[in-house]
Design a protein around this nucleic acid. Sequence first.
RNA 1: GGGCAUGUAGCUCAGUUGGUUAGAGCACCGCCUUGAUAAGGCGGGGGUCACUGGUUCGAGUCCAGUCCUGCCCA
Length: 943
Amino acid sequence: MSAETPAKKNYKDTVRLPKTDFPMKADLVTREPQRLAKWEAGGLYQRIMKQSAGRPKFVLHDGPPFANGDVHMGTALNKVLKDIIVKSKTMAGHHAPFIPGWDCHGLPIEFKVVKEAKDLAPAEIRTRSEAYARKFIDIQRQSFKRLGIFGDWENPYLTLTPGYEADIMRTFAKFVEKGLVYRAKRPVQWSYGAQTALAEAEVEYKEKTSPAIYVKFAVLTPGFSRLQEDGYSLVIWTTTPWTLPANLGIALHPDFEYTAGTFAHEDGRQEKLILANSRLEAFSASTGFKLDESRPTTKFKGSTLKGAEAQHPFLPRGSKVINALFVTNDTGTGAVHMAPGHGADDYIAGKENGLEVLSPVDDQGNFTAECGLPEFVGQHVFKSNEGIIAILEGKGALLGNEKYVHQYPHCWRSKTPIIFRAVEQFFIRINDFRQDALKAIDTVNWLPAWGRNRIHGTVESRPDWCISRQRTWGVPLPVFYAADGSILMEGEISRKVADAVELHGTNLWFEKDDAFWCDLIGLPEGSKRCKDTLDVWIDSGSSSVAVLERHPELYCPADVYIEGTDQHRGWFQSSLMVSVAVRGTAPYKTVITNGFVVDTSGKKISKSDQEQQGDDKGKDGKDKEKAKSGKPMTAEHYFNKYGSDMVRLWAASVDYQNDVPFSEELFQQTGESYRRIRNTFRVLLGNLNDEKVEQASSLPEATKMVAPHSYTLIDRWILERLHSIVSDCLAGFAAYDFRKVVSTITQFVSGDLSALYIDITKDRMYCDAENSPRRRATQAAIREITETLTKLLAPILAYTADETWEFLGHADSVHLQDFPQPNETFANAEAGAAVEDLLKARAVIQQAIEAARQAKKIGSNLEATVKLTLPEAGFAHAIFSDLPALQEFFILSDLHLTRGPDLAATVEVCTNPKCERCWKLLPDVGTIAEHPTLCGRCAEAVG
RNA sequence: GGGCAUGUAGCUCAGUUGGUUAGAGCACCGCCUUGAUAAGGCGGGGGUCACUGGUUCGAGUCCAGUCCUGCCCA
């Protein structure tokens, strides 16, 4: 009576279902830290280095992030890409050390420190800045390690260490020795907010409203040729009225046509003015002054007035008329106000024409006595615009005044508008080696290729490098001033400073007095140290000297630099310029750029935006709201919520050479891919659970236990596919195309493994006798597939691959393995051709079955009787006459074959009895007395 | 405003020297399965290939222009 129940149960127990402890739920957030701890305890990175010692080297040089703030997703993307490169190069047979670094000096840190406590002594600022930097180095290091990035984390390079600082100074010494450094009073981009000069890379452009005014300058020189009468005024246009006290000249384009004539205003005013012809109309539209055609006018070229003298509108001095080619005719009047102390073009043109450099503005951006207007001394220049306009108006020199909205440079740290201001600064003369740098660019492989043009253009047009900063948190500019004020700048002097710094750090410079240093260097008594520090781009730009050449494991040029696209102007360039100046060649062989992380609406999510959000919290409602709606952008948030492998998979599956879209939704999408891969690994591992122990312990020979001829067609096919997947992935890694690797593997896992191979081989794996040759053959194939995929994924899914490797029975980490090589045995795609035909037939069958299923005639495929018509031509492979093999491939109980004109299939309800064990509907069920509910195969398997 | 990039399904991306009905993965809808089950299978919907014009028998692909977005610069 109850005999059937235990019997049923018994048959179910004889089915060899996949069994594994490899969890379906990844639980990366808790498991990854455990694995990381294991890696660290075992010194995995050091072991990889030891194991790969002696192989061809591959050096990826880490561009140092600022030791400031948490790890942003953009930084995480970059670091993960670096790690994938290093791991894949290692597995491809290289010795690839990774020495991470941090950029420690500079304004961002000093700014925070000074904000927290005012009026600190320089030495104190430096102590606090170092502590600040080290705090964030630790924070970032934890995040990078957590992201699964392998490297010598305990011995990173820091630009604040004495050795590095000394090398910066020695690099400077080389510049000095090559005669590339000079000191000059030149206009620089000055931040009054941060009170320092700024480099090109330290300014950002934002919209600003400025007063745009038209001002007349009376021409003094009487009877100037071609001017028929006197009393004319040149008209200039400027958006910076505050620079007028520094006006020393007026520039005209030598070739433009100018008109001198009488202009009348509606209000009755009349003026005798000179403007460029092309600007007359715009001038009239802005000011209301129209040229009175009835009065005599004179036309002449700008070169005519060269050398004339005009009257400064409110100061008792002249303004010299000069010619300059940079005068344009798209804005203004064709006559440009020249203040050599307040503009780069002005400075150059002024120098050529013998104008002085006047810059009556102090560090805070306030006027000094030199401005010649006592009432303005001590007042901020931007607050003085209105007063100056009032003076002009009072003197009758103001012809027009409007609001002008334009993109204006701002300080990246203090966010204040910058001013051009002439101060004594140190510069590197670029022209002396610009051509060498341009040549060096063409020795480098730029990825993507347009990077070459980008940096070429940058280097071609860049001005001299302003390398001095009036800041405290940086490497001192190692030069001295003699008692008479003259400069003591020699390579030898700087080297002596460097040697002392190497031993004691740069704090020595700030702690000891001038007498100490004069004594140490051997300078005459009374000499004084320079108070400036070096531009931080010299710091990081010197890394090819301070790191690549110094570190025993590295070399120069490095094989690869990879950073965000903004570094064409930043680190790629500063590194290039330093390297070319110092050794004449580029510091890198290949330069890869990654795009910026943007949200899905295509907006840039920058680190400084994120910081702004944090900084501005609570300041006002608007920013608060912005901070609230802002998405978290720290890597920590995402690896703590989704796991590091998810961040890594995201990084590997986007087109990093363009801007990289990022959103929570995208993360969920990545999660789907991840789960698919993981679940597939889980089944594969489950199917290996009864692999012979001897096999597992004699790895990797296990995969070779079944000779190729024992494989069935479907096994040979999947191994052929695997063969080409290996080739594709290796090619993808070699081309730094990780997206290709991910999509290749994803599609293989989803399309070939999950939907076909695993599905088709379920029957033999579950229901065949344990040692049936085809079952063992498939098991061997599964081991090869799993091991191969695990190794291919290891550089990307650093944690999951390692976990899988462990479940494959290996004691040690997958990261000590090399990449698999394509198996030549399966290179000829013999099975692939047959499977192509099989898949065509399968599609036709599935459509027929689906129709029956939708019509509720059948449920599972096994309930169908399928009549398949194959075309007369083709479908010639032996398998098309092997009915059992076809039934297995199509996963059917009952298949009938005919040949006809077209490929076609019809479906009927199968009437055979169902085998209780394998669930197929087969005619021989019930023919075995011992097992009345089983088919022949199952009866035999049960024994 | 200039230089360099970019724009193919809801999302991330393929689309070879121009050549059938533009593909994949994920998402979505329906069905099946419950022996991969917080899984798996099958089927399906979904695209004016940014826009406009041109070359061509034929253009996502080549040419010109426009627009969007990003980087760098002014």
